[in-house]
């Protein structure tokens, strides 16, 4: 079955997968390094953004695996700096999205990315149930997932007195519609 979301067909290499998912041909990158130079978190990453592209270009299973296990793909903030400056207009943030999805599918996400992934999951839980973000639930769900129970709780009273924390969630009417969208989207994306 072919699908515009490219979910089913297994592509041989990660570069193929990325092309399939995003339409970006990594071979186009000529390794000028401008993306890595402008990336705000390049110095925190285990592999720089341009190196990620180089590794994909080589189409070797060991390198593909290393990319999917990297901390880098989870540190990318989608700030769009690299894409804005790339002379070849390579949509690197979109490549990162596709790599993260594949890393989750293969269950090889970097251990240090645990907190980040837990946060994203808690965030989506709130949206699935309320339709909107319920900040208190988000923080609590995240704390439970990560066991960072104290960090941030100290902040809550300060926000509360300033009227910045909603004690009650905003519930939309279309909550069952939201649940259906989540289900149907998940079926597509795996």
């Amino acid at each position: 079955m072919s699908s515009a979301l490219h979910t089913v067909s297994a592509t041989d290499t990660l570069a193929g997968r990325v092309l399939h998912d995003t339409g970006v041909a990594v071979a186009e990158c000529y390794q000028c390094g401008k993306c890595s130079a402008g990336c705000p978190l390049a110095d925190e990453m285990d592999i720089t953004p341009s190196q990620i592209l180089r590794m994909l270009q080589l189409e070797m299973p060991e390198l593909d695996d290393e990319v999917l296990r990297s901390h880098t793909i989870w540190l990318c903030l989608t700030c769009e700096m690299c894409y804005a400056r790339c002379p070849k207009e390579i949509d690197l943030p979109k490549v990162m999205d596709s790599l993260r999805a594949e890393s989750l599918r293969r269950k090889v996400a970097h251990p240090k990315a645990r907190d980040i992934i837990a946060f994203h999951k808690s965030f989506l839980d709130s949206i699935r149930t309320c339709g909107r973000l319920y900040e208190i639930l988000l923080i609590v769900a995240y704390k439970v997932r990560t066991r960072h129970l104290l960090q941030d709780l100290l902040m809550a009273p300060k926000l509360f007195v300033r009227g910045k924390l909603n004690p009650i969630p905003e519930l939309i009417r279309g909550r069952s519609h939201m649940a259906r969208i989540f289900q149907r989207a998940q079926r597509k994306d795996g």
Binding site: L5, T7, D21, L77, T78, D97, S98, R100, A101, L104, I116, I117, F119, H120, K121, F123, L124, I127, I181, F182, A185, Q186, K188, D189
Partner: peptide
């Protein structure tokens, strides 16, 4: 960011 980090269709 949460959705596009985890699920493209969503």
């Amino acid at each position: 960011t949460a959705a596009h980090n985890l699920n493209h269709a969503l």
